[in-house]
Simulated assay, not measured.
Amino acid sequence: MARNTYQSRLNQLEEDVLYLSELTAERVRFALDALEDKDERKAQEVIEGDREINRIYLDLEQDCIDLLALQQPVAGDLRFIAASFKIITDLERIGDLATNLAQYAIDAENDVYAEVDIRRIGDAALDMVDQAMDAYETEDTDLCHSVAERDDNLDTMCDNASQSIVRDLMNGDDFEGDGDLEPETALVDVRRLLLTVRDLERIGDHAVNVAARTLYMIDNDDSLLF
């Protein structure tokens, strides 16, 4: 493979990874909108769009394999391809989590525990993903470390939300909405809310993974990988 063609394929790989990140972030935002507005149409759009994310992921996976097999890259190019290979896996999983959130929006029958600001938690997780991908695009090591540091704050937000839900449930406090809900129905709604918080926390974890792989790509620094 000619060197200029090889470099062109590396550049295209980066552009395609960035496109996948934009697409998955959009899906998460749509899912958050669906949760907030109880918009079943938008939720269904997210679920149906997961097939496109999976297709792009598989195409990029094959691109990475081809570059590794045909060119046998070394040093920086090797780290770039390997990091991109790992990053697209995290992005695909973020897409799966967006699908989960959309399904929760469809399944939701009642407004429960309005004090838990799902949108605020979701926006914080998405900001981490955006920052991690900015680090990948600009090769900014400071941004990589910033994403990892912000994960503690997201974890605290999620822990506080989950603990509040469980504590009030055990204390018998009423949830927002119909006060005459059957206990079994209320428990289903609470479980869905806890799963929503958990999946948002996982989106943040994937953002940290992207930042860690990016830091390794830039500086051969594995300090965020463990």
Rank of each mutant, 00 (worst) to 15 (best):
G177W: 02
A69I: 10
R79M: 06
R167S: 10
L154Y: 07
G122P: 04
Q72I: 14
T141W: 00
D173K: 08
V197L: 05
A102K: 03
L101C: 04
A108Y: 00
D123K: 14
I81S: 04
V166R: 05
L194R: 07
I118K: 01
F80A: 06
R150N: 15
A98M: 09
D127C: 08
A75D: 13
T99L: 03
N110F: 12
M133Q: 01
M128Y: 02
G122W: 01
D159V: 08
D96V: 08
A125N: 08
G95R: 04
Y113A: 01
A148N: 13
A132F: 05
M133S: 01
G172I: 00
S84N: 02
P183F: 13
F80C: 05
A135M: 06
R167E: 08
P73I: 10
D107I: 07
D111V: 13
D174N: 11
C144Y: 01
L143W: 00
I121M: 10
E139P: 00
E137F: 06
A105N: 08
V129L: 15
D174A: 11
Q71S: 14
D123N: 15
A69W: 05
E92P: 03
V116P: 03
S164P: 00
N100K: 12
D159W: 09
A124G: 10
V197R: 00
D123Q: 12
R119N: 10
R150S: 14
Y113V: 03
E92M: 08
A75T: 12
D151I: 06
L70T: 12
Y136N: 01
D134P: 03
A124I: 04
Q71P: 10
E137N: 14
A82N: 11
N100V: 04
N171E: 08
D77W: 03
E176M: 07
M128V: 07
D159K: 13
C144L: 06
A108T: 12
Y136M: 12
T99S: 07
G95E: 02
L101S: 02
A105G: 08
T99Y: 05
H145W: 08
E182N: 14
M157E: 09
